[in-house]
């Protein structure tokens, strides 16, 4: 196989084979052991279908996405300008970096009791948790992006005698954008991890809640699909 058709096939077929093999093994093992706690893949599909049909699934997905959207959006609004500033102004870096490096390794789970205390059990708690867990990776990534700009870009711009403001706007920001996007990818990943954990503990809606809720019912297949 070669040429235009061969390339997409080579890209799509191997992961599909792995997926199909995993489902086949899952199905075979569950059927062979007649397990009471593991549903078959088909039971998971029908479980998810039921939830999707009565609208519960979309409600919970919507609730989770709303929290991630707001928390992550706020984190981007804070982290990107602050990260650029810390990268560009040495004094700002020296002043704030130690504090952020200390706050950054605190587990988002450890913030949960404080979040509940401060914001109650509504939407604000998970939004705060998402914000606090995704803001630091993005800030660090943006700052280090500014620090690792190739010197020749800055020197080339300096040769044209541009002001510091123009240099920042025309050279620094475009040069750092790829790092900012990497930071956003890390941030949205963390945000999605955290929203599920937060909903398991504090809330009555969202995918995390749905998992915990279905765990307590006989509909164990639900837990696997969306658990649905």
């Amino acid at each position: 196989m070669s040429g235009a058709i061969g390339e997409p096939v080579r890209r799509v077929v191997p992961p599909l084979l792995v997926l199909a093999a995993a489902v086949a093994v899952w199905w075979a093992v569950v059927s062979a052991t007649r397990s009471a706690i593991f549903p078959t893949p088909w039971q998971v599909v029908t479980g998810a279908w039921e939830l999707a049909e009565d609208g519960t699934l979309w409600e919970h997905i919507g609730a989770s996405l709303f929290r991630v959207g707001v928390g992550f959006g706020l984190a981007v609004l804070v982290a990107v300008p602050f990260g650029l500033w810390m990268g560009w102004v040495l004094a700002a870096y020296r002043t704030f970096n130690p504090v952020f490096q200390m706050l950054r390794p605190i587990s988002p789970i450890a913030w949960i009791p404080l979040a509940i205390l401060w914001f109650g059990v509504g939407d604000l708690s998970p939004i705060f948790l998402i914000f606090i867990s995704s803001v630091f990776p993005m800030m660090v990534q943006t700052t280090s992006g500014v620090h690792t700009i190739e010197r020749r870009y800055l020197r080339a711009a300096a040769n044209f005698g541009v002001s510091r403001t123009v240099l920042f706007r025309r050279v620094v920001i475009p040069a750092v954008l790829p790092e900012i996007i990497v930071g956003m990818r890390i941030g949205i990943g963390v945000a999605w991890l955290v929203v599920v954990a937060a909903e398991m503990i504090a809330l009555r809606s969202g995918l995390g809640y749905l998992i915990m809720d279905s765990r307590a019912t006989p509909a164990i297949a639900t837990t696997w699909s969306s658990p649905a």
């Binding site: 998810a48 954008l177 790829p178 996007i181 990818r185 949205i188 995918l207 699909s225 658990p227 649905a228």
Partner: peptide, 30 residues
């Protein structure tokens, strides 16, 4: 859980789409 994984994948792909924005292209096509 499978749905959570799938949505996470979609969110990541959505963020990656930003890499195609015009001000960024110069960096990748170099």
């Amino acid at each position: 859980m499978i749905i959570i994984g799938l949505i996470g994948l979609l969110l990541d792909s959505g963020t990656r789409l930003l890499e195609g924005l015009r001000p960024l292209r110069w960096r990748y096509v170099r």
